[in-house]
Amino acid sequence: MQIEHIQAQTHHARRGSLKNAFNYGVDYVMTDLSSETPRLLSHNRFNLWSVHDRHHGGTRGAGQGAAWFKALLDSRGLQAEGRQLLLLTQPSFLWFHFNPVSFWIALVDGTPRAFVAEVNSTFGQRHCYFCAHQDFRPIEPGDTLIADKLMHVSPFQKIAGHYRFNFDLSDTRINIRILFENGDQGVLATLCGTRRRATSGSLLWAAIRRPLGAVRVLTLIHWQAAILYLKRAPFLKKQPAPERMMTDGQTLRRVGK
């Protein structure tokens, strides 16, 4: 697989009585972690942009990379024959790394059969949500997979409710929708972008257009937190980390089926 650079847009909209919404451009790469990289992107070594196994797959800061995802799929029973494993993530910029959410994706015959949303909070915690149909049939754009929320991500949202995931990976685009629901409260988050081959030119332009990578991401997160604080949104202190690393999602059962 060629490494892809997805110059994406993310949209966040708060639900409930207190409204807040924003759109930002973000840079993701999608890789099988074995392909040759452009000059400005490296795997497990320093560069302008880089992807490190220790940042993904397992305990935060002590990840095992693709080996972790492979073992997880083996334990869940997804066939190994014809299976392709991908990581969709925001790469590190120079020495700086922070990624609110990455996605491990398992393809069979070119179609997504399972994915893991690897969620990181600014509190230093990580929790993963494993999503697949019970029979590992292809995940279609209209399919909704749900999982209970177990980690404190935002100081303005309780550890309650659930996530609804919609995952659309075509040959040309990525469209991911995550809806957090807790009664009439919650947050809608989307990630959309065109799939293009990563080049040193595209990565250099990203560094100029959206400089500082992870530092910029953290700055924008804290800026939005300040806006909510000034709007007097209820503020919660850091909550205990979940006891387990993984939550298994399930297919949303439609009425009448």
Score class of each variant (00 low, 15 high):
129 Y>M: 03
122 T>N: 05
136 F>T: 05
44 N>G: 04
163 Y>Q: 08
195 R>N: 01
100 P>D: 07
249 G>Y: 01
99 N>R: 12
160 A>E: 12
245 M>L: 15
32 D>W: 10
38 P>I: 07
41 L>Y: 12
167 F>Q: 04
54 R>S: 11
157 Q>P: 00
44 N>Q: 03
213 G>V: 03
54 R>F: 13
206 A>P: 11
208 I>N: 08
209 R>G: 01
52 H>P: 07
127 H>I: 00
40 L>T: 10
49 W>F: 15
205 W>H: 14
227 I>Q: 11
51 V>K: 06
16 G>M: 00
255 V>P: 02
197 R>Q: 14
75 S>E: 10
216 R>W: 09
137 R>M: 04
22 F>Q: 02
77 G>L: 06
47 N>L: 06
121 S>F: 01
114 A>M: 13
172 T>W: 07
234 P>N: 03
239 Q>L: 14
91 P>S: 05
146 I>H: 07
87 L>N: 05
241 A>Q: 07
239 Q>C: 10
193 G>T: 07
212 L>W: 11
20 N>K: 03
251 T>Y: 01
223 W>T: 10
51 V>L: 10
83 R>I: 07
112 P>N: 07
128 C>N: 14
257 K>N: 14
41 L>H: 12
56 H>R: 03
184 D>I: 06
231 K>A: 00
29 V>R: 04
174 I>M: 09
149 K>P: 09
92 S>E: 12
114 A>W: 08
189 A>I: 05
71 A>M: 12
208 I>K: 12
238 K>I: 04
196 R>E: 15
212 L>V: 06
231 K>W: 00
21 A>H: 06
192 C>T: 15
145 L>C: 13
167 F>L: 07
24 Y>R: 09
251 T>G: 00
32 D>R: 09
165 F>G: 04
140 E>Y: 08
237 K>A: 15
165 F>D: 05
201 G>R: 15
156 F>N: 05
37 T>Q: 11
140 E>I: 13
1 M>V: 11
198 A>C: 07
221 I>K: 03
16 G>T: 01
132 A>R: 08
199 T>R: 13
93 F>Q: 06
138 P>T: 10
227 I>T: 09
186 G>L: 02
251 T>V: 02
256 G>Y: 12
242 P>E: 04
184 D>T: 10
25 G>Y: 08
105 I>Y: 00
158 K>H: 01
66 A>I: 15
146 I>M: 12
125 Q>D: 13
210 R>P: 00
189 A>P: 12
240 P>R: 08
150 L>I: 13
207 A>T: 12
122 T>Q: 03
133 H>N: 03
209 R>I: 02
129 Y>R: 06
113 R>V: 05
162 H>T: 08
123 F>D: 00
143 D>S: 11
114 A>T: 08
109 D>G: 03
229 Y>S: 06
193 G>P: 05
248 D>S: 13
153 V>I: 14
129 Y>D: 01
20 N>Y: 05
9 Q>F: 07
253 R>Q: 15
117 A>W: 06
104 W>D: 05
211 P>R: 02
71 A>H: 14
55 H>E: 14
163 Y>F: 11
163 Y>W: 07
55 H>M: 10
84 Q>G: 09
122 T>D: 00
197 R>T: 15
118 E>A: 06
